[in-house]
């Protein structure tokens, strides 16, 4: 999995590409541990080919941490495969989900 980061309107836009599962989840987790806590984040999931329950676990963890430091985590651009996983696990109730990155990166 590759992680690329850029900034729009004080939001860190993180684009993920590849597979988000038990083996790649720690990489994403450590990426967030190194970045400042109070910054709001948009995660672009368009190019995520596969996500499993450990992958969801990392996202839930990040959302919790951001909430604790009064910042937000938004998810954007869920493709059909990812959307299906959010749907069956009902994980969508824990996240703010946008269909567009730039719209998500507005306070």
């Amino acid at each position: 999995m590759t992680i690329t980061e850029k900034n729009i309107n004080n939001f860190a836009i993180i684009s993920l590409q590849g597979i988000l599962n038990a083996s790649s989840a720690p990489k994403l987790k450590s990426h967030f541990e190194q970045s400042p806590e109070g910054v709001s984040v948009v995660i672009d999931l368009e190019k995520v080919e596969f996500i499993d329950s450990s992958g969801l676990g990392v996202l839930v963890g990040i959302a919790r941490k951001k909430k604790a430091s009064s910042a937000v985590l938004k998810l954007a651009n869920l493709n059909d495969r990812v959307k299906k996983v959010f749907e069956i696990t009902q994980a969508y109730t824990l996240f703010d989900i946008y269909d567009d990155v730039t719209a998500a990166a507005i306070e």
């Binding site: 499993d52 329950s53 450990s54 969801l56 676990g57 990392v58 839930v60 963890g61 696990t89 009902q90």
Partner: peptide, 25 residues
């Protein structure tokens, strides 16, 4: 339960996510 096989769930809702995921996968 499937959720017992994962490390991350902190509350019952988290456990449900894992349970639901594996119920299908």
């Amino acid at each position: 339960s499937y959720s017992e096989a994962e490390d991350w769930p902190q509350n019952t809702f988290d456990s449900d996510i894992v349970d639901h995921y594996y119920a299908v996968h």
